[in-house]
Amino acid sequence: MSGFETPEGIRLQKVLSAAGVASRRVIEQYIVEGRIRVNGETVTELGRRVDPETDLIDVDGTAVQLDVTKRYVMLNKPTGVVSSLRDENGRPDLRVFTDDYEERLYNVGRLDAETSGLLVLTNDGDLAHVLAHPSFGVTKVYIAKVEGEVTAQTISKLTKGIDLDDGPIAADKARLLDTSRGSSLVELTLHSGRNRIVRRMLAAVGHPVTELVRRQFGPLHLGTLPVGKTRELTKIELGALLTLSRRDSGVAEAPGEQQENE
């Protein structure tokens, strides 16, 4: 970022005001109240200057994005769309949604073609890498429609753990939402990044998935966003997402490994 006021950087009030946090006067009050940290240290002086390109700032423990060129979008991905920006087999891909934005957006993690629900699109490569990496273990919540009438014993089995071909797995949470006429709705909460893990878990306990939607990704909730629609994240959502990504931004990259949650 160019245009520093001095070689030492830009006043904190100016940087946070430009980022849309609050007015400079309000930010000064935040500083007095000890509500702002720079690189983990509470700011105490009103004349504090920062480098927006390198310093990490949070207000009340929530991270702030200083780079206004970064864009963060929530998509309710329909079934039949692959989580790729160019599918080699000619199937519908994410370009139908990313072409609406000037920035070149990328998907954070993946959902398979027949799974719908919450997918994040962004041009923030650092955030995308951290949140999508299997080692990071972001919590995801899915609702699955399955064959058969699920029992309380089956729900317990999902949380206690089951053995799959690639090792044991247990849901963080599981609950039965509905069961009738030979099918059931099950909500699963997982932090695993293993391939098609929800479908494989439910098949392993005798209830193959017929429909699957991801309702939550970390602090983000799909809410009432219609299928096939996008919206930009709110400042509160973005702050929560950045805070989550900065919590463990030192995750090492595993070559060739990419998350496909469902």
Score class of each variant (00 low, 15 high):
Asp124Gln: 09
Arg199Glu: 08
Ala18Glu: 14
Gly61His: 08
Gly90Arg: 06
Asn107His: 15
Asp126Gln: 11
Leu233Tyr: 09
His207Asn: 13
Arg199Gly: 09
Asn261Ile: 07
Lys229Glu: 15
Leu233Pro: 04
Pro52Asp: 08
Glu28Thr: 03
Val205Glu: 02
Tyr72Leu: 07
Val32Leu: 15
Tyr142Ala: 11
Gly250Val: 03
Asp165Pro: 04
Lys14Glu: 03
Ser192Ala: 09
Thr189Tyr: 00
Gly125Asp: 06
Val251Asn: 01
Met74Cys: 05
Asp60Asn: 13
Ser184Gln: 12
Gly250Thr: 12
Arg110Ala: 06
Val138Thr: 14
Leu202Glu: 08
Leu241Val: 03
Glu237Lys: 01
Arg25Tyr: 04
Thr151Met: 01
Glu88His: 11
Leu127His: 11
Ala128Asp: 12
Gly206Val: 08
His191Cys: 10
Asp87Asn: 08
Leu212Phe: 12
Thr115Pro: 10
Phe4Trp: 14
Val227Ile: 13
Gly61Ser: 10
Arg35Ser: 10
Asp172Asn: 07
Ile155Cys: 08
Leu56Pro: 00
His221Gln: 14
Asp126Arg: 10
Tyr106Gln: 09
Arg214Val: 09
Ala240Glu: 14
Lys229Ser: 14
Leu75Asn: 00
Ser245Pro: 01
His191Val: 04
Lys70Gly: 02
Leu119Phe: 13
Leu121His: 07
Ser184Lys: 10
Val209Arg: 11
Val21His: 03
His133Phe: 12
Gly161Trp: 00
Ser156Cys: 00
Ala254Gln: 13
Gly223Glu: 05
Thr210Pro: 02
Leu220Glu: 08
Leu233Cys: 06
Gly182Trp: 06
Met1Ala: 14
Phe136Ile: 04
Thr115Arg: 12
Glu8Ser: 04
Lys160His: 14
Glu211Trp: 09
Tyr72Val: 03
Ile36Met: 05
Gly3Leu: 13
Arg110Phe: 04
Ser192Ile: 01
Glu232Pro: 01
Leu222Thr: 00
Ser249Gln: 08
Pro52Trp: 02
Leu222Lys: 03
Lys157Phe: 00
Ser183Thr: 10
Leu177Arg: 04
Ile10His: 01
Asn76His: 15
Leu202His: 11
His129Pro: 03
His207Ile: 09
Ala128Leu: 02
Ser180Leu: 01
Pro255Cys: 07
Pro52Glu: 03
Glu257Asp: 09
Ile31Ala: 04
Gly228Glu: 07
Arg196His: 15
Thr6Pro: 01
Leu16Val: 08
Leu185His: 04
